[in-house]
């Protein structure tokens, strides 16, 4: 049986090299390479199957090769009413992986409350299929995961926050003009929620 996630892995497998974008909420494709080839053709068939049988709540995974695109979408052109909890992490980062459940809980708890939890993975792009997507599936992550794959870290770390040393995990809480940057690992949901509420209220 084809699950939505395994399909995404399949789609992804053949699309690396282009900017690989995924299905958006199971309804439409965000970006898709149009070069016809056999694997692409198979993908389209699978895509068709997916659209027929796929789940509604399929989560997307967008790859940002360029920090500026990420910045525009998530830091600059934000919804002013929305509280954003933006966590930078990676599958190889032990403390990051440990604190992920608190972000998942926060996402679940405040989903109907104008809150968006975004998990910005800093995994390497070549590990998208081998590590990141399997990890998301294994952990059953419900929060939105995106991949920021801009190698030129020295050019963009300060744009996230000038006090950021470059170590992960970090979390950015944003609502309108309010902003809180935290460079540490959370050890409980309560601890995370306290920082979150200082911005969310």
């Amino acid at each position: 049986m084809i699950t939505s996630r395994s399909l995404s892995v399949f789609l992804c497998k053949y699309k690396i090299g282009n900017d690989t974008y995924f299905l958006n909420s199971g309804k439409k494709l965000k970006t898709y390479s149009s070069n016809f080839n056999m694997s692409g053709f198979l993908n389209m068939i699978l895509l068709g199957l997916f659209l027929l049988f796929g789940k509604e709540s399929f989560s997307q995974l967008v790859v940002y090769d360029n920090f500026d695109d990420f910045e525009k979408e998530w830091l600059l052109e934000r919804d002013a009413e929305m509280t954003y909890v933006i966590n930078f992490w990676a599958t190889w980062c032990v403390p990051c992986v440990k604190e992920l459940p608190y972000f998942e809980s926060l996402n679940e708890q405040y989903a109907k409350d104008n809150v968006k939890v975004v998990l910005v993975s800093l995994d390497f792009k070549e590990n998208l299929n081998s590590r990141l997507l399997p990890f998301i599936e294994e952990k059953g992550l419900k929060s939105e995961v995106i991949l920021l794959a801009d190698d030129h870290t020295n050019d963009w770390i300060d744009k996230v926050d000038t006090s950021w040393s470059g170590a992960i995990p970090i979390t950015l809480f944003l609502k309108g003009e309010k902003r809180l940057f935290v460079e540490k690992q959370y050890h409980s949901l309560k601890e995370l929620e306290e920082d979150f509420l200082s911005i969310h209220q």
């Binding site: 190889w92 032990v94 800093l122 870290t153 020295n154 770390i157 040393s165 470059g166």
Partner: peptide, 13 residues
């Protein structure tokens, strides 16, 4: 120049 640069890394444990 530059005398300070930044890169992603693993936090010190």
């Amino acid at each position: 120049k530059p005398s300070v640069t930044k890169a992603i890394g693993c936090s010190i444990k």
